[in-house]
Nucleic acid binder design. Structure first.
Lengths: 188, 188
DNA sequence: CCTTTTTAGTACTGTGTAGTACTAATTTAG
DNA sequence: CTAAATTAGTACTACACAGTACTAAAAAGG
């Protein structure tokens, strides 16, 4: 079970200090798992990074599935609940690594192509989920039926990612909720 | 004039390989400027990074001022011209460092607070410029006059930054134009 | 022409850090 | 009970890389 612990510690260290600026020695110190044991589970630092990416993907996937499937609520309410959840995470990390995927993607070494691909796949999957949500919203009459679902879904995601990043640079998590509510405003 | 050359070479190396993954030795090799001369102009690597950030800020500021001030064109046309320009840059760098500011911000060492602040200021300045543009668009009747200028300006920027990042992960620059045109669609 | 600035070259230092080697204890599970 | 998996500890290696020291030649500028 040390493997899990190492990943969890690395997951926050990589966000708060950066992948390149986090040494294996520090990971050992913070996680209190012996170095030999760390290398027993992960052949090198890059493999650990891959594990961390998987960790964040699973974490976010779980949170999304849990919140977004509450079909009794309006689409906008569900999305806002999820964004509130994200917003909390950003603040609890003190605006470091606001979006784990942006942070890890950009900090991955150039040769770690499989990691970048993994993150790319996550976003294409995300796009499909958002499309389904918008579809629901249109059917329920929440949004006008003249919108182009897939394109607007892409717009939602670009806005979300940009909002997460800007919340970090501006140290202000409210942009996440504010820009989203403007977005929904424009869909009515 | 070697100072300028060093900055220009570093500006692209830092985007394409990453700040932490670009060694001063490689910079010396590529720029063909002697190491002693590099350190004559920049006291350390972080100061060079600051210079690179300034370089990108000036570059983008110039491009924006030049394109966005063509008042005879519609707001949407001007913005689309600018985005086309950005899109070219992304493709010419082969989807590495799509948005220089995201890339440099996230790759800066945690203690480089002045660099992060500089980028934060750039974005607040950008927000004001976009607000003015939207104002113009409303006055010209391009956009409906019920929109909340400042909040929608924020939405535009978050979308733009997100689109730049996603274009990198998806290796598809068209999201930049596509999401922007959806955005303008929603403003009419 | 003389002073200051900019440039080059070469060799070097020191340190941070990823990863290894090896032994041995402890835990898990069949 | 036994074999395999997991964990710890300690010491070590090898190397990349930021930054320095020093000398000296060009260039620029007044």
């Amino acid at each position: 079970m040390n493997q899990k612990r190492v990943i969890e510690v690395a997951a926050t260290l990589f966000l708060e200090k950066g992948f390149a600026y986090t040494s294996m020695d520090e990971l050992v110190r913070v996680s209190k798992v012996s170095k030999s044991n760390v290398y027993y589970h992960f052949s090198d630092k890059e493999e650990l990074l891959a594990g961390v990416v998987d960790y964040w993907i699973e974490t976010y996937q779980r949170a999304m599935d849990q919140i977004l499937s509450q079909n009794q609520l309006s689409v906008e309410d569900r999305v806002q609940m999820f964004l509130e959840h994200l917003s909390q995470g950003v603040q609890s990390r003190e605006y470091k690594g606001s979006c784990p995927f942006i942070t890890l993607y950009i900090q991955s070494p150039a040769q770690a192509t499989h990691i970048k691909e993994k993150i790319g796949l996550f976003f294409t999957g995300l796009q499909m989920k958002v499309s389904l949500l918008l579809q629901q919203g249109v059917e329920k009459g929440e949004f006008r039926n003249t919108i182009h679902i897939d394109e607007v879904a892409a717009l939602f995601i670009t806005n979300l990612e940009g909002a997460l990043f800007l919340s970090e640079t501006l140290k202000d998590a409210t942009v996440i909720m504010k820009t989203a509510s403007q977005f929904f405003n424009l869909l009515r």
